[in-house]
Design a binder for these strands. Structure first.
Length: 442
RNA sequence: CGGGCAGUAGCGCAGUCUGGUAGCGCAUCUGGUUUGGGACCAGAGGGUCGCAGGUUCAAAUCCUGCCUGCCCGACCA
């Protein structure tokens, strides 16, 4: 892509309504535009990043055997009345009437709808277990939306639902998700800590919040430092291996504010290992058994002809929130550097311009064409701004690597710079190797 | 929903107290000079001053009502 053709309305000044870094940067970098409080349009740069995150989330769901479907944003109130949550959910639910006066709502979550789908199609224990998910817009009418996309009314979320025959089987599904979440966040360049948490309006008795550490986080956390060192890469996604991993995490104390008990914390965690800080909740998993299957009458037939309510769990990841959360976790020295796995482009080509000498630009175009041919997602700065102005712009956009064509370039050696990092003089082939390698290691 | 602050050009702001017909920086457009950390010169365009009503010869400015946004709190992926 050529920068001059890109729709990326960059702001030089920070809009006064944005207070946290991720919000300021997303507005400045032309990633989002506020439509009204807590509701945003996603402009090409922001949308591209969100789509990359979505794709990683999808791949990790598929890896554990979850199947993707798509449910609507607008739901009928009926099933919510059946489950009893139409009254319980309260003001956060956006209620709508259609022209016939029928009660509808913009879905804040999908337990009822998926259960309704499941119960009408699955009748036998032989069909279990099942893991289903979708990635769809949700709406929660927040009292006070804030922090840009971190806490908005309309948000993009992956929500998965598990269906099992009994508690033991359900636990396996839960642990699979537990594993998938750790893998997902790792690929996003984040270290997420699973923490025992309150279940809120979803209900149930087992629940983990996945939290990434960031000062601007809204959740207060109490944890054992050593939990950060657990290496998930040694674990495959078969049941035994996942269970081992789960045990490793369970060894360490890690809870959010509402589950915190000072006595237990001080007893279980030595002073030097205590980690008390703030974090951002980027995922939340729940096991709630038959909380929805029972009232909604979602059962399967067993071998002996008896019926049993299926055991369910639900599993959310805030995809749109992650865009902001990654910024909060990665932002440094006024420079936003995206992890390669979600970066809007893998590399930027920045030629300096000289009066009466377009050598650098011609070199840049040649490199550009070669990289495009090798399927590298590359952005060429073909504008005639000052080089210094370009650098500032690219600090803001956060493309992790730059090829700079200037005084240090020759026909076959180029200045290759990691954003906020070191500079090397390399051939195009060497550069390509580094970029392709980066793709797989983030 | 309680408490606080704010709405003037795309963005950041001044002007409001003390009423006299709207300004600055950045951005944009034209021409020229520049090009290794947000350049320079010359010129140009862009605003029913959040909305409605009132007071006045005259309202961005005073009065009343409403709308919108932000911050703190209570509540949440």
């Amino acid at each position: 892509m050529y920068l001059s053709k890109l729709f990326i309305p960059i702001l030089k000044d920070t809009p006064s309504e944005a207070k946290v870094k991720s919000h300021q940067l997303m507005l400045r970098a032309g990633m989002i535009r506020q439509s009204s409080a807590g509701i945003y349009s996603w402009l090409p740069m922001g949308f591209k990043i969100m789509k990359k995150i979505e794709q990683i989330v999808r791949e990790e769901q598929n890896k554990i055997g979850a199947q993707e479907l798509l449910m609507p944003t607008i739901q009928s109130a009926e099933i919510w009345k059946e489950s009893g949550r139409y009254d319980d959910y309260g003001e956060e639910m956006l209620r709508i009437k259609d022209r016939q006066g029928k009660e509808m709502l913009y879905g804040p979550t999908n337990e009822e709808l998926i259960t309704e789908i499941f119960r009408s199609s699955i009748k036998s224990y032989k069909s279990l277990p099942k893991l289903l998910y979708h990635i769809q817009w949700k709406f929660r009418d927040e009292l006070r939306p804030r922090f840009g996309v971190m806490r908005c009314k309309e948000f993009f979320m992956k929500d998965a639902y598990s269906f099992d025959l009994n508690d033991d089987e359900a636990k396996k599904s839960y642990n699979k998700m537990f594993f998938a979440y750790l893998s997902t966040f790792k690929r996003l360049g984040l270290t997420a800590i699973p923490m025992a948490a309150d279940t809120g309006p979803i209900g149930g008795d087992v629940s983990h919040e996945f939290i990434i550490l960031a000062e601007t986080g809204e959740s207060k956390i109490y944890s054992d430092k050593r939990i950060l060192n657990i290496d998930i890469s040694k674990h495959g996604n078969e049941n035994n291996s996942i269970e081992d991993l789960r045990k490793k995490y369970d060894e360490f104390y890690a809870v959010t504010d509402d589950k915190f008990d000072k006595k237990i914390f001080e007893k279980k965690v030595k002073k030097e290992n205590q980690l008390i800080t703030k974090g951002i909740e980027v995922g939340h998993i729940f096991y709630f058994g038959d909380k929805y299957s029972k009232p909604l009458n979602c059962s399967v037939d067993l071998q002996d002809g008896k019926k049993v309510d299926v055991k369910m769990g639900s599993y959310g990841i805030g995809v749109s929130r992650l865009v902001g959360a990654i910024i909060e976790a990665k932002f440094n020295n006024n420079i936003m550097k995206w992890p390669s796995s979600v970066a809007p482009y893998e590399v930027a080509i920045i030629p300096t311009l000289q009066k009466n000498d377009n050598t650098n630009y011609l070199r840049a175009e040649k490199i550009y064409k070669s990289l495009v041919k090798s399927n590298v997602d590359v952005l060429l700065d073909d504008t005639d701004e000052h080089l210094s102005a370009k650098f500032k712009k690219f600090d803001l956009i956060g493309i992790p690597f730059q090829i700079i064509l200037g005084s240090k370039s020759t026909d076959d050696k180029h200045e290759f710079k990691e954003l906020n990092g070191k500079t090397e003089i390399l051939t195009l082939e060497e550069i390509k190797k580094i970029l392709l390698n980066k793709r797989n290691t983030n």
